[in-house]
Computed example of a mutant assay.
Amino acid sequence: MRIGILGAGGMADALGTQWHRAGHEVMISGRDAEKTAALAARMTGAAKVQEREVLAGTFAEAAAFGDVVMAAVLEAGLTDVLAAAGTALRGKPLIDVTNVHPDAYDPTRPIAGAAADLTGAHVVKAFNLCHVDVWRMTPPVFDGRPLAVPLCGDDPAALELVRRLVADLGCTPLDGGGLARATLLEATAAFVIGLWFAGADAQAILTPKEHAGA
């Protein structure tokens, strides 16, 4: 699979390196061409795949390159980056991993829904519940249980591609419902990240499945 990544930060590095290692072709993109190229070279070395390299390009080039595209930029710059990516995103699977600061999230302004409206892409909300370092783990397994990754989206083909990418990380994809429910996933991230910021163990708020009722 060809994966275009809009962004050249931690999420692009962590997820892009894992997917490159898993056999996919990856292009990252950023505003600073020199820094983006340097990150692509580091990702190539970290993945230890000698026969091909992680590529670096512009936002428009990465959008055109990918069979699936991931938006991995700060929420404040997301609109500008999606505009720079251009019309290549229309009708294409677009993974949205974006969060905002817990105190700033507004459920009346869903991020994933706005991305879909701006681009005409088949947006899938995913990978937004974990710190970037979790995505560097090979694989992310806790107490013998692979990490589960909820997905929210409307397009079956886009969801299937993202499920494959989740599985390539050694994680378990979970059906979280349609794109309208991505607002709940974004709000969940804002809530639990706020707990983590406060020093709480956010995972402790949920009981094991056998204690979840009939």
Rank of each mutant, 00 (worst) to 15 (best):
A14L: 08
T17D: 12
T36G: 00
M27V: 00
R21H: 07
R31Y: 10
G7N: 11
L15S: 06
T17H: 13
G30Y: 00
M27R: 00
R21G: 03
G10M: 07
A14T: 11
G10E: 14
I3N: 09
D13S: 15
T17Y: 14
I3L: 15
D32N: 15
M27G: 01
H24C: 12
S29H: 05
M11I: 15
M27P: 01
A14F: 10
Q18C: 08
H24F: 10
G9L: 06
S29L: 02
D13H: 15
A22C: 06
M1G: 13
H20Y: 06
H20K: 05
A12I: 06
A33K: 12
A37S: 12
R21L: 07
E25Q: 13
Q18K: 14
A33H: 13
H20E: 07
M27K: 01
E34P: 01
A37Y: 01
M27E: 02
D32E: 12
G23D: 06
A22E: 11
G9N: 07
A22T: 05
A8K: 08
D13E: 15
A37D: 03
T36D: 00
I3S: 13
H24W: 06
A12G: 14
G30H: 00
E25M: 02
G9A: 11
I3H: 11
G10R: 14
M11L: 15
I5H: 10
A33V: 13
G23H: 09
M1Y: 02
S29N: 06
A22Y: 09
K35I: 02
E25D: 15
M27D: 02
D32W: 13
T17A: 06
A8G: 06
G30F: 00
A22F: 08
S29Y: 02
G9S: 09
R31V: 08
R21E: 04
H24R: 05
R21K: 13
Q18S: 14
G16H: 03
S29F: 03
A33N: 02
D13A: 14
G4V: 04
I3V: 15
H24K: 07
L6E: 09
I28C: 01
A33G: 02
I5V: 15
R21I: 01
G4N: 10
D13V: 05
